[in-house]
Each structure stands twice: as C-alpha cells, then as structure tokens.
Design a protein around this nucleic acid. Sequence first.
DNA 1: CTGCCTTGTAAGGTGACCTGACCAGATGAC
DNA 2: GTCATCTGGTCAGGTCACCTTACAAGGCAG
Lengths: 168, 168
Amino acid sequence: MRDATHTTIEPGTIPLPGLLDIAAEALLAEFREELTNRGYADLRPTHGCVFRFVREDGMRLTDLATNAGITKQSAGELVDDLVKLGYVERTADPDDRRAKLICLTERGREAQRVGFGIFTELEQRWAAHFGQERFDQLRELLEQIAAEKAPAAVPELSHAALAGVRGE
Amino acid sequence: MRDATHTTIEPGTIPLPGLLDIAAEALLAEFREELTNRGYADLRPTHGCVFRFVREDGMRLTDLATNAGITKQSAGELVDDLVKLGYVERTADPDDRRAKLICLTERGREAQRVGFGIFTELEQRWAAHFGQERFDQLRELLEQIAAEKAPAAVPELSHAALAGVRGE
DNA sequence: CTGCCTTGTAAGGTGACCTGACCAGATGAC
DNA sequence: GTCATCTGGTCAGGTCACCTTACAAGGCAG
C-alpha cells in the first residue's frame, strides 16, 4: 500500500500539520455540538480562552491576555462579548483603580464546568473508540511536543513564569 | 502526578484540541522557516492547498476548490496571488471555453518539490527526536481519525468521489 | 510633584475565509 | 435551431479573529 522507501511524501499522503488540523477540527466540532445541546449555543470557540484561564478570584485583562497569548485588545473584545452574554462581569479591582477584575458569573461558572466536562467525556469516548492505550500515547506525545515547542502555552510553566521569571 | 480518577479535566491539563493546535502550529512554523531559508519567503501557508492539490496536467478552479474544501472565490484569490508571484499560470481549457486550467510554472513545480521534501524531512527529524515508533503510531492514529471523521479530506477517498461518486 | 510605567480602550487594518449576484459559455429539451 | 437551464469563473461586499498605533486615566519612584 504505502511505500516507505521514497524520500518524498507520495501524493496521497496528507502532511502532518494537515492531519493534526483535521483531528483538532473534528474534536472541536463535536465539542461545539455538545455545548449547543446543553444550552450554550451563544458561546463561540474563541471564548474558550477566557474560560480556560480566568481564575476563581478574578483576573485582570492584561494577565488574561498574557496567559492566552493574545493582545489585551483582543482579550478585551472577548470579555466584552461574554459580558453582553452574561457569562462574566468586570468588577473594580480594590488594589488599583485603573484595573478591573474579570470574574465569572454564576452562569459563567456553570458553563466552565460543563465545558471542561465535555472535553473529558469526549476524550473518554475517543479513547474507547480508537483504543485507550493508543489514545493515551497520543496525548503523551502531544504533551511532550507542547512542552518542548511551545512552553509558554503549558500552564505549569506559564504559571511559574507569572510568578516572577517571565523569561523572554 | 496525574490523577485519572477525576471525572473532570484538572486545571493544568490542556484540552486535546489545544494540544493538537500547538503541535500543528509548531510544525508549520518549522516548515515555513525552512521554506524561507530555501528562497520561498513569498509563499503564505494558505497557498499550500494549491500546491497540494493541483495536478500535473492542470486543473480547473472549481475542482481545486472542491478538493481543498473551500469556495471557488477563495481558491480564485489564492490562484491570483500565485499567478502574480509566478508560481502558477492559467491556460485556456481546450474542452471548455469558460474554463481555465491552472498549471504550475517551472518555479511552481520546484516549489512543490521543495515543499513536499521539507515535510518529509521534518517528519523524519521529529520522528528521530521523539522516537520513531511513537511518531509512527501518532501518524497512524491521526490517519485513522481523519479517515473516519473527515473522509472528504482524505485524497484516496476524495479522488474516488471525483471519479463519479460525488456522494453528498 | 513630575516624569515615566502600567491598565485598559478606541480606531483602524489584515488575512483567510464566507455569501449573493452575475456573466459567458455549454448542454439538454423541444 | 433556439431557448431554458446548468456550470465555470469573477465581482462586490461581509465576517471573524486576530493585529498595530495611539492615547487617557491612574499608579509609583525619584
């Protein structure tokens, strides 16, 4: 079927970035379908980065942006959206009158729980379908790749960075 | 380290779509760097879908768009770009005076060879770095996922579709 | 208290798509 | 043959998820 002796990708082989994209998109599509089914059709994929990074005790826009790896203007727009939709609110920061703390509302916390729950379920479903061991190996390898190639995106390291190192 | 008994993703775990994106982006960044080093800095990532799908004997815009999974307007814009940059040309289709055949120029064919070559090299490099067997398993699983979740994107199947089935 | 550094916002731009409307040429029905 | 319909490609304009530049309001160190 496939001839591994060629020095070039044969026509018909999808380049790896393409395969990764396809898998990511498929997973995201299933995620969004579930999210819609559970009554959160108004959330767009990009809103995820707020839910993923916002802390329980509130968070400044600048920190959110740094964590998510986007500009504060972009983060601000996402937060505006989520405020309109009732998922987060901006409260005054007691320590700094320029700043506002971004906090999840009750509905926001619910959405966060549901969202993380869906990811967990989906991974379990895919693992059962494609083979638990193969799937675990996939995640493990991807985590290693992420740690080596994009350390800023890996929470453990980026929290360390926030705690003073900020190397870069 | 990681407690698999939780029913929810623990904070600190990157959802799988995110991990897939990180890997895809890292790979693409290395690809683009190599491409730039070899004198093709004027090619943008989206131009890739033309190089990936265009056939040796020329291809109609509509077919290109169908294969790439985008609208003919978008495909047309990419082709316009590549014509300006000297990688492809539009020639008259002898069988249909409405249609034009999109063909690679000599430089276009060179870029295509170089591009596929870089993907091959990169995969070999990553395989050597992360472990040949693990890497092969990664590709294998991703190919299975692609075949099941996005059959239209898999060349073998989509060529069959072009050859008459066009189911959908 | 003055000059600089942050926090957040406003305005406008870009890339990579999309939809709707359309024309020119092909094709099938009559 | 010719007329309606289908198809290949283009034009205009919209959207989404970002971006950069510029700036006001508030903090902070000398």
